[in-house]
Nucleic acid binder design. Structure first.
Lengths: 225, 225
DNA sequence: GCAAAACCTCAAGATTTTCTCAAGTTCGGA
DNA sequence: TCCGAACTTGAGAAAATCTTGAGGTTTTGC
């Protein structure tokens, strides 16, 4: 599920938490000291860091500050009950959440989820739907009437460009500029060939198009039927 | 923002989605059954319909078909994950988009925006309208009394030029300059021939013009009747 | 009412633009 | 380095469009 890094000096707790989270499908690594932790976190860039206070070599606040200098990773601070106040104040220093020891792994996982959800980029959905065609640039999947199309990178980009402005005619010159990022040298069959294979994969022909309609002398537009 | 109608039999989901969308400034109504939904949609003509599959009284496809018989309103189909394929296939049956349950309201709103955007005229609308003639240079579509005309590139450009300055007389010299980007050699039948085919496609003749009026000795002007 | 000038139409031939196949070329991973 | 998918390129076929020349019509000026 998520890649988690645990910084915790108590070997027993480390073993326990690691095992529990791993058992829930997470990818867990751990270190026992602040400096090791810092190094590992930077090297492996986990999705979340769980940081125990009271590490032997460095104050939690100190580690947090160093970490924030090099990474935006969400951090959950774990603290013993009597250190409560100090943990809360850590929220101001860059921690994203805290949990009081001893904690249950259920609780911990709930916090992890919350932090991940919060930090995740607003899940804008860039899907484009045109009739029976669904094109999702995030997963780079395109479906026709529900079944997945096997498209090469250029083919996908081309189809997305056309779908993004479906109904509008797009010139080959523009396709070349958008998809290839190159100026268009007139006598170029590259775009044509890609359109041709695209048509083949969409199960249509140039003379009987379902989606890719050529507008002679101008370009191509994507509209259904 | 938009007037939305939700058809969803689960009261809890209905309450939740309604509240969320309303909180974002939308005007939301909802119904729990297909038949109520149909009635309400026809009566209130919303901007978008969100349609849950698996309604108690009627199959989603059935409702969609009935709805399409009386309305062009954009429909977003909501479906449980295991019904995925069926939802996608509904795209062929008149749905405009789909979303998989459970969905976040963020997602839903993104989809709503997408379908509304699709229906709305593009940012800047370059269309020209003269009587029953509509000419859209972005899609390169020209319609006469609602039905699509099949025009060649030059014909389209010519018609657009005339429509762009409808009411004004435009000389052949200028047409040649604008559409052909070439100096005008007096004895040139090219423009005449194109105007002729254009008239044919507009269903008119030179002696009984509806749109293309000849101004003897000067040029042509496009005005209705 | 007549002739000249300006327009219109038709159809065939010339051109332009697209499409597709097949044969290279590249590029990244095994 | 070798293999294979992806991308390019060239050439010819196929479409679609454009142009041209030869009349036929309508309009204008006398």
């Amino acid at each position: 599920m998520a890649k988690i890094h645990l910084v915790e000096d108590d070997a027993e707790i480390r073993r326990l938490v690691t095992a529990s989270l791993a058992g829930r499908g997470h990818d867990v690594e751990s270190t026992a000291t602040a400096l090791d932790g810092l190094r590992e976190i930077v090297a492996t860039s986990p999705d979340v860091v769980i940081l125990d206070l009271g590490l032997p070599d460095l104050d939690g606040r100190e580690l947090l500050r160093m970490l924030r200098a090099v990474s935006q990773v969400p951090v959950i601070v774990a603290t013993a009950r009597d250190q409560d106040a100090s943990a809360i104040s850590l929220l101001d220093s860059g921690a994203d959440d805290y949990i009081v020891k001893p904690y249950s792994v259920d609780h911990l996982e709930a916090r992890i989820r919350a932090v991940l959800r919060r930090g995740a980029p607003p899940d804008q959905d860039r899907r484009r739907v045109v009739g029976g065609l669904v094109i999702d640039p995030d997963s780079r999947e395109a479906r026709l009437d529900g079944s997945l199309l096997d498209l090469s990178p250029k083919e996908f980009d081309l189809l997305f460009l056309l779908a993004d402005r479906s109904g509008q005619v797009i010139s080959k010159r523009e396709m070349m500029a958008q998809v290839w990022r190159e100026p268009y040298g007139g006598a170029d069959r590259t775009v044509d060939v890609h359109l041709s294979t695209l048509r083949k994969k969409l199960g249509e022909t140039a003379s009987a198009p379902r989606y890719l309609h050529t507008v002679h002398g101008v370009g191509i537009k994507l509209v259904e039927s």
